[in-house]
Amino acid sequence: MRGPWGPVYGPIDLEIPTGGVNVLMCPAGSGRTALLTTIAGRMAPQSGELTVFGANNTHEIFTRSALAGIDELDTVPESVTVRDLITEQLRWDAAWYRIVRRADTNALTATCASVFGPHPLPPLDEYFEELSELDRLLLRIALANTKRPPLLVVGNLDFVTSDLNRDLLIGRLIELGCEQTIVTATVNGVSGHDVRSQIPVANADRAELSETQKGTG
């Protein structure tokens, strides 16, 4: 992938196993973000090949994936409530002719329980900005994952700065990985958790690409 200011990522030769939590290890930045959005079918690579669950074009990949935790794509306005966010997502998912009323406790449970697990669900009338880092990301995952596609891409484990909350987040992703393939990313590896794979990714950082170009120029 290239942008107006030069290479964004690549070339990358990457094979991600099916099922479980798969962690891409690479620096944070536009290259990593673009790579994750490409894997989720939200961006088309400019060259090369990409196959996700048998699909090799962005439209088909899009229908097989969910994407959460990418600020450029799923940023949540801070001054809205949990109820409003769930209501909006349910209306987005519903057929055009269906009337979807404001979310209640049953809607909260149906939307969030599988992602939050034993972790307490956020109050319906709580503002998004008042939630903890962990709850904000779990809610973004729950909103993205309402249709439970085979692939779930979660943008950034480093978004959660507390080690305890990060461990809780990874635990929830591992649980989701029993039924989906989870792809996420972090600068450092993940220790103390039974993730499916940890994959170092080269050529996903602008500084690294610049050095590569110097070596090949």
Rank of each mutant, 00 (worst) to 15 (best):
I199L: 14
A204N: 03
V154A: 12
D167V: 10
L173W: 06
Y127E: 14
V153C: 05
D158C: 14
A144W: 05
F128H: 01
S191H: 09
V153D: 13
S191Q: 14
E179S: 13
G189N: 14
N145S: 10
E126Y: 06
T111E: 05
K147E: 15
V183N: 08
A110G: 11
S191I: 11
R136W: 01
L164I: 14
T146E: 08
I174Q: 14
P122H: 02
G155L: 02
G177F: 01
R148V: 14
P150T: 02
P200M: 10
V183G: 04
E175T: 14
L168P: 02
N145E: 04
L157N: 08
T186A: 15
G155Y: 11
P149L: 10
R166N: 12
P200W: 03
Q198D: 05
S114P: 03
S162W: 06
I170P: 06
F128A: 04
L176H: 03
L131S: 02
V115T: 12
I182G: 03
A202K: 09
S197C: 10
A113E: 15
D194T: 08
L138N: 04
R206A: 11
N106L: 14
L168V: 14
Q198I: 12
S114C: 04
F128Q: 04
L157C: 09
G177D: 07
I170M: 06
I141S: 00
E130N: 12
D194M: 07
L134D: 08
L152Y: 09
D163V: 15
C112T: 05
E126L: 03
A110F: 00
S132W: 02
L124A: 02
R148E: 15
D163Y: 13
S191L: 06
G189M: 10
D205M: 05
A107N: 12
A107R: 02
P118L: 04
E211P: 00
S162Y: 02
L137E: 06
L134W: 04
D167M: 07
S210P: 00
R166S: 13
T181M: 08
E175D: 12
E129K: 09
L176W: 06
L151M: 13
S197K: 07
E179Y: 09
V154I: 13
A113N: 06
V160G: 01
T161I: 13
S162N: 08
L138D: 03
N145Q: 11
C178S: 14
E129M: 05
G192Q: 05
G117H: 00
D125Q: 08
H119P: 00
R136V: 01
V190A: 05
N106S: 13
V153S: 10
V187S: 11
L151N: 11
G189S: 09
D205N: 13
A207F: 06
L151C: 11
A110R: 12
P120M: 04
R140T: 09
Q180M: 12
N203Y: 10
E175W: 07
T109W: 07
R196Q: 15
T111H: 03
S162V: 07
Q180L: 04
V195W: 13
N188C: 03
I182F: 01
L139V: 03
N165T: 03
V201T: 02
S162G: 08
L157K: 11
N188Q: 11
A110Q: 13
P122L: 03
S114T: 10
R172A: 12
